[in-house]
Design a binder for these strands. Structure first.
Lengths: 242, 242
DNA sequence: CAGTGGTCTAGACCACGTG
DNA sequence: ACGTGGTCTAGACCACTGC
């Protein structure tokens, strides 16, 4: 028995099917919003029992790579601004309503990744990145100052775009086939320095929340690094833990 | 057909079994750390197929009410200081190691719930609460100032205890059969006032993270309300989102 | 109506931990 | 060797959606 067969034998069938389905989605064979084949056909195609095919699809569902719609089919997950906000936006106002600040965004600039970017984005030294600066507003008041870094290798030609949508993950998926599946936020409190104070129109020394976020794609590959300085006032950063 | 039968018929069998298992755990019939019956016996007892019994238990697993141990059995979830920290402690140091500050804790005081406590703990007006103050340290340095509020009704006799463990959720479960299944944190940045500055031995105005946490028990009942003021220095509050 | 996912059954055999 | 959970099979019927 070959080693490959040994490994295949040890890995449960439904996980093997799952892995091949992930590969088909990652390759773009089935694009965002498109239906994947019915479970019965997946079972036939991979020569497994219906229950096994279903277990494989269930794993995709729990990873949010696909969405089941009773009576209609199973569809590759597609970002919309709404569920992107519901899934990853953790800022709420005093009435617990999600707040989605909008704002102007600078054209991306190209540069060589610094040490932090290399570490957080797992890049080789001297890799190139795009950087974007955003000033986000809420009710006409400056709310957050953001710096976003993206590996150039994943987002070719981003520098030529001058219309960048506010919902970034939707953009990454639809234009670059980069699917954000997980993010990690790290928070601390800082005092506003002179730059932040000027941009956010507040006094130097005002306490701000600093949010560092790494967004991960398929295979836990980091795809975006972001630092936000937020003047929350009545807003809060909310995290639910189970 | 009666309405009750209508409802029972609509609710899937495995969910009905699940609900009855939850009731048995909530009632204390099966205590923390104790094994629940094997899936085959659950199937016999509730007159369902093994697969249905298994689906019911799987729901308990995903709610973290029980833990499966291959070859041994399925056990009612039991808090240990370790997994309590891993599950709900979101503070890490600059090396991404979890930090678990320890500290002295005042004897609980009894009082009438204020407006905030009534709202956050869903208490009737004039309900009584216990309040605990903690000063937590890290490497011998003051780190966080905490105020904890608990409904007296859920924790009878808490005021007489003078040895309160650091791992609170473990204590709630083992002594009061109150199982914390979910928490919600709300964060903002504040400047240290004179009290906080004195206790934390920092300058007035130092930016602090303020964490408000509500802990929920079975049935989404709020069981603990807490406010922490943290002087993080190199530490960070971390949240993973999927 | 046909086609999809959702539930349920009734087994079989494997993998793991304990005695 | 035994009992547990983990995987897998091969169906059946129900519930929902769209034609």
């Amino acid at each position: 028995m070959s080693e490959a067969n040994e490994a295949a034998r040890r890995r449960p069938l439904y996980q093997q099917v799952h892995d091949r389905l992930v590969a088909l989605i990652a390759s773009g064979e089935w694009g965002p919003g498109q239906p994947i084949p019915p479970e019965a056909e997946i079972a036939r195609r991979f020569r497994v029992a219906p229950g096994t095919a279903r277990a494989a699809v269930s794993a995709l569902v729990s990873e949010k790579l696909v969405v089941r719609r009773h009576g209609r089919g199973t569809f590759v997950y597609e970002y919309t601004p709404e569920d992107e906000a519901a899934r990853f936006l953790r800022l709420v106002d005093s009435n617990r309503k999600p707040i989605n600040p909008v704002g102007r965004m600078d054209r991306p600039t190209r540069g060589v990744a610094n040490q932090t970017e290399c570490r957080e984005l797992a890049l080789a030294e001297a890799s190139r990145v795009f950087r974007i600066k955003r000033l986000r507003e809420r009710n006409g008041t400056p709310f957050a100052l953001e710096r976003i870094s993206l590996p150039e290798a994943l987002f070719p030609g981003l520098g030529e775009r001058d219309k960048l949508r506010d919902a970034r993950y939707e953009l990454y998926q639809s234009l670059y086939r980069v699917l954000v599946v997980e993010v990690e936020d790290r928070l601390c409190a800082v005092a506003a320095d002179s730059t932040a104070a000027r941009e956010l129109k507040i006094a130097v020394g005002t306490p701000l929340i600093r949010i560092e976020r790494v967004a991960f794609g398929l295979g836990a590959k980091p795809v975006e690094w972001r630092v936000s300085l937020c003047h929350l006032t009545d807003a809060r950063y909310v995290a639910q833990l189970k």
